[in-house]
Simulated scan of single mutants.
Amino acid sequence: MSLRTQLNNVLPDILPASPKEAIKGTELIRLVRMRLDGNYSDASLRYHFSIMSCDPGSSIAKVEKGQGYYRRTAAVPALAGAQELLSMTQGRLDDLGSDQDAVDLALLRVKKFRAIIHRWCEINGRSPFVFREPFNANAPMGNLWKFPELMLVDWEGAGEDDSLNAVLKLKNTLNLPPFRLYASRLRIQPNIHTFREDFFQALSASVWANGGELFYATAIDDEALTDAFRKLNATFGVGVTSFGLSLEQLDDLPRPAHILNAHPRETEALMERLEVHRVAAAHTRPHLDWGALDAIRNDSEEVDQLFAWLAESLESGNTKSFTE
């Protein structure tokens, strides 16, 4: 049996699941050697640790900014989808098991994260538009690949008081794009088994926008996963950002409605809990794909609502949020 095969067999039982409890190479060599058949040098074992940790399909992962190794795993695999878990696939919820408390907890985490992103976007000058109708109980599964959870509107030239300043008004007069639209997918936790589905679903849902973004609630500590996202970003352009919230921190957050309606000081305290890390910046396309946009207009009336809101904002001279 090859060394790599033996390591694949023994490492899952030795490595800790949390990066915070990562085992340094010297200690890992000692523990592994006790369970291997054959006399392998330290250099050979370190080489295999290094090579395998760069393979997203292996069980060993290396701490991205530090020392040590841990077990590559997915704590909440059922959260590969976010918006769709809320209303669309009761069958998929049934697959989570008969533990209704676990299902409720998973959905609550999703709602809290969506509320956090909503407030974070507003604070950072990005106007969010939430798509709901394409994900209702009777909607086709194909909508998961057509629509984002959030469309983020970046007004190029909006003032601090949400007014359209002279630069933006001039762009509008010259028929230059006064805003850019970024279609965003929200996920709780990166999963080595589903990260490609997350990424390409975000890409598919953003083909008609100026760009696409994939947001994760938890940190992305897996160096191999980070590299994989950056390689995908270099080719396809979808941005990837993590917000550094542990599952325990998500559970400690107030209810979603409270997050959305929090007072400024409360919102500031909530934002201080975030550790925002941009793994890869979204590539920006200069124009919307009007053909792709026209192809999905009949699939949801909310597409027309989005552009009616944008047109009203331009006519009224301010960029108030959609709910207002």
Rank of each mutant, 00 (worst) to 15 (best):
R4Q: 14
R4H: 12
Q6S: 07
N8F: 11
N8A: 13
L11R: 00
L11M: 08
P12W: 05
P12A: 01
D13L: 12
D13M: 10
P19D: 03
E21R: 15
I23W: 01
L28M: 04
L28E: 00
G38T: 07
Y40T: 06
Y40M: 08
D42C: 09
R46M: 15
R46I: 13
Y47P: 05
Y47D: 14
I51H: 13
M52H: 05
S53N: 05
P56R: 03
S58I: 04
S58N: 10
S59I: 05
A61W: 02
K65Q: 12
G68N: 05
Y69P: 03
Y69K: 04
Y70G: 01
R71L: 09
A74Y: 06
V76N: 06
L79H: 01
L79V: 08
A82S: 13
L86S: 03
S87D: 10
M88E: 05
R92K: 15
L93C: 10
D95T: 14
L96Y: 13
Q100F: 11
D101T: 10
D101H: 10
V110L: 07
K112H: 00
K112I: 00
F113E: 00
R114N: 13
I117K: 00
R119F: 00
C121E: 09
C121T: 11
I123Y: 13
I123Q: 11
S127F: 07
P134L: 06
P134H: 03
F135M: 03
N138K: 14
M141R: 13
G142Y: 15
N143W: 02
L144M: 13
L144H: 14
L144F: 15
K146A: 09
V153T: 09
D154G: 07
D154Q: 11
W155S: 01
E156I: 10
A158G: 02
D162K: 12
A166Q: 09
V167Q: 11
L168G: 00
K169T: 05
L176S: 13
P177C: 04
P177R: 04
F179K: 02
F179Y: 12
F179M: 04
L181F: 03
A183W: 01
A183T: 01
R185G: 13
Q189N: 11
N191V: 04
I192T: 11
F195P: 01
V207I: 11
N210C: 08
G212H: 01
E213D: 09
F215L: 14
Y216F: 11
T218I: 07
I220T: 06
I220W: 04
D221A: 10
A224E: 03
L225P: 02
D227S: 12
D227E: 12
A228V: 06
F229R: 00
N233L: 08
G239F: 03
V240I: 15
V240D: 03
S242K: 07
S242V: 07
S242A: 14
S242Q: 09
G244D: 02
L250D: 00
D252Q: 10
D252S: 09
D252I: 00
D252G: 05
H258L: 02
R265K: 10
R265L: 08
E272W: 07
L274W: 02
R278I: 11
V279Q: 11
V279Y: 06
D294G: 04
D294E: 09
R297P: 03
N298G: 06
S300N: 05
E302F: 06
E302I: 09
E302P: 06
L306H: 08
W309Y: 14
L310F: 04
G317P: 00
N318W: 06
S321I: 10
